[in-house]
Design a protein around this nucleic acid. Structure first.
Lengths: 111, 111
DNA sequence: CTGTCTGGATAAGAACTGGTGAACGGCCGG
DNA sequence: CCGGCCGTTCACCAGTTCTTATCCAGACAG
């Protein structure tokens, strides 16, 4: 699966640089320090800029298979990614929650 | 493959001089004393300064073929290179670990 | 306003990854 | 033969990450 990521191009969005081949996210040239899972989530959402991705879709994209009811894996992962991004860029929000549906990636300045 | 190395230019980075044609690494004009394999690894990473190189890519570049799961060859080789470099330049770190991903070359003074 | 459902936050144990030292075997020169 | 060098593999361990459970705040329906 890192192989498939390697094929992808570098994404430049807002103050982000996302390098699939290195599994790295750079924010204003600083490394976010995401783990492999975390990167997969973030990159997956980033590719669908501005669109709401449903939870089960996210789950399948990252873990494969069907998401069980009450499985909180996606939520916890989102939480971790948000946290790491906030450390590097406190004044930005990247992942937005859509209640009862899923998440949407779009960089927004908060201040 | 020593042939391909011979074609390459000498790299000057930080306190390093890397001579592909001689398979030699000089640190402040002192020889690191790397073996052929060790040099290949170090040079390969050095050419990708500041970028994270995934383990399987490293493996393929040096041994060819696919890296098996749980193959520790890369790790052990990195360990040996680090050790030899540390003897010559204790106050420098050259190879950084990115957990779950691979390694990144960028010279940093530690002290 | 109240009850119910969804998602945020946190924590504990399991599972995994990488650092490290050493053993093993091949190769070569003496 | 013998000893040293080199590359590979193994085993142990520390540190990191993932999974799962729980508690709680916010959202929504009636």
């Amino acid at each position: 699966m890192p192989t498939s990521l390697s094929q992808q191009r570098v994404l430049q969005i807002a103050n982000l640089e996302i390098r699939p081949g290195e599994l790295q996210v750079l924010i204003d040239d600083r490394r976010a320090g995401l783990t492999v899972r975390e990167f997969e989530l973030f990159f997956m959402l980033a590719q669908r800029l501005d669109s709401v991705v449903q939870r089960p879709q996210i789950y399948t994209a990252i873990w494969g298979g069907e998401m069980q009811r009450r499985d909180r894996s996606v939520d916890v992962l989102v939480r971790k990614v948000r946290h790491k991004l906030e450390i590097v860029a406190p004044e930005w929000k990247y992942i937005h929650t859509h209640f009862g549906i899923g998440y949407r990636f779009s960089p927004e300045r908060t201040s």
